[in-house]
Amino acid sequence: MALLEVNHLSIGYQTAKGLLRAVDDVSFAVDAGQSLGLVGESGCGKTTIGMALMGLLPPNGSIVGGNVVLDGQDLSGLDEADLRQRRWRDIAMIFQAAMNALNPVQRVGEQIVEAILTHKPELEREEALHQVEGLYQLVGLPVGRMHDFPHQYSGGMKQRAVIAMALALNPKVIIADEPTTALDVIVQDQILKETKELQKEFNIAIIFISHDISIVSEVCEMIGVMYAGQMVERGTTREVLGQPRHPYTQALLNSFPALGGPRRPLRPIPGEPPLLIGRRFGCRFCDRCPVPASSCKLEPPELVQVGETHFVRCDNV
């Protein structure tokens, strides 16, 4: 049994126009020390999955099917108080846009101390402060900057502080939601490398959410490609990037310019993703698919196994 198992998870948002199925029948498993990248365009449901794992869905959102099992315990059955205990201690999150994830009027070190003391009230403040010093060293921040405010930090430093906060309680799982999107390439490269080293050192499972396949391919052993709320392809990074089987994965790969190799033309994916409100028939990608079959519009495709750990949601593979 894997450390974290997500089984047939479906998540809906109540909207004025009806139920929006943001996530539909998504399954994956991550073990300690493993990393899974969730890739897809905005609106594909990847952040919603992250929020659901943290138990942080907004009030109009709820899990409408499937479950999340962490360490053998079903998280979807827990009440808010239990969930709060587990949150941050078992699962932590590195939020998108670190500049907004920190309280602007509290000293950065103090915010991490607070997070530690909330979950470990038995600790002395001094001890917590000492732990924060250790965390600062771990993520490559100068310990002397603990008493500065967020606006005195650069973008990269804020991101490191947010990573330190995620590591504060030795979580088993970290969800990293676009952790480097706002950063420059050189800082991004350093932070990705450091995150990888920390993950190995502490044997953490990481779920890495990004719209950028190239970043995920550098960090993760496994990739899940999301489209319109569904996981359309999943496997090891080598399988998914080396032999992409789903037309969407192939199209996504063709729309990234590369730094090396022959300069090939990019092929943008025509059209827009579908709306997720109301009943849908058939494959969600078929309107944009370069190789649709007549049956694709009628029957929703099942997840097909095409390799040892390689699954594809397409009838034409």
């Binding site: 190239s214 391919s217 550098e218 730094l259 090396g260 190799g261 022959p262």
Partner: peptide, 22 residues
Amino acid sequence: QALIDATPKFGDCGDVPRYNAL
């Protein structure tokens, strides 16, 4: 060279050398 080192490479990127200029 440092910018090239830091850019994520993937797919059939060919042989982009590492410069270690930073």
